[in-house]
């Protein structure tokens, strides 16, 4: 009986409350409601597993934390295998410094994982976004280890439905669309517990990209851009 528990502990499938006291530093995500559920915010280093459809606000939820990170350090932010071309004006608008953003377009998933590991453990990147559809346990472990070595945070985004087994990551979130912002479910958190789905309201940060209950009948004037600006 005891040995079974030991085995599980060795495989890091089992945690004791004493092991995971406030050791994990967190960084604010920029959204108070999310920070409250995560008890502080996104982890400072490690791997965050995100399962989300494209275009529901997943980057808008995660990027503010990385703007903060970029302001605090001189390190790079890396995007690996993005599903489409990243739009530079949006990055500028969010507050990123483009000279410290690196975009990698690998030819296949293997190269994407390799680049992620190299970037994470290099120690000169503090955030790595990876779009990867089928991360396996040993790959997640390697990325987690690399992230700890290089003190970086890696976000792995996938569109698939959540996989049955849990990856050895610091945090796993499931995102779903929601008119007021985005619906978040914490599926795994080191030193924490699952959560019920909750909504992160983005009406303040992204008023144009949320649908509020219509309170007035104001019709916005069309904007026209032409040569005269």
């Amino acid at each position: 009986m005891n040995s079974t528990i030991d085995q599980l502990k060795n495989k890091r499938l089992l945690w004791q409350a004493s092991q995971v006291s406030g050791a994990h530093k967190t960084l604010s995500s920029g959204f108070d409601s999310l920070d409250a559920y995560l008890e502080g915010g996104l982890p400072e280093q490690g791997v965050v597993d995100i399962s989300s459809p494209i275009g529901i606000g997943e980057l808008r939820l995660l990027l503010p934390s990385f703007v903060l990170r970029q302001q605090n350090s001189q390190k790079l932010l890396v995007f690996i295998g993005a599903p489409a071309r990243l739009n530079a004006p949006m990055l500028v608008k969010m507050g990123f410094e483009l000279s410290r953003i690196l975009i990698i377009e690998p030819k296949n998933a293997k190269e994407a994982l390799w680049s992620t590991e190299q970037c994470l453990k290099s120690g000169c990147c503090d955030g790595v976004f990876l779009w990867h559809q089928g991360l396996e346990v040993h790959q997640a472990k390697r990325l987690q280890f690399a992230a700890e070595t290089g003190e970086a945070l890696s976000v792995v985004l996938r569109q698939q439905q959540p996989i049955s087994f849990s990856l050895p990551v610091a945090l796993a979130l499931e995102l779903a669309p929601c008119p007021e912002g985005i619906q978040v479910t914490v599926t795994k958190r080191k030193g924490g517990s699952h959560s019920q789905p909750f909504t992160v309201n983005m009406a303040q940060a992204w008023p144009s990209l949320t649908r509020q209950p219509k309170s007035s009948n104001i019709v916005p004037l069309p904007r026209v851009h032409s040569l005269t600006g």
């Binding site: 000279s99 690196l102 975009i103």
Partner: peptide, 23 residues
């Protein structure tokens, strides 16, 4: 452990010159 430029060289050696960009 390594500098930014070293990282770029490392990635370029493996992925080729046409895989790394900045916006």
């Amino acid at each position: 452990a390594i500098s930014r430029l070293q990282l770029i060289s490392l990635l370029q050696a493996k992925l080729g010159d046409d895989a790394l960009f900045s916006p």
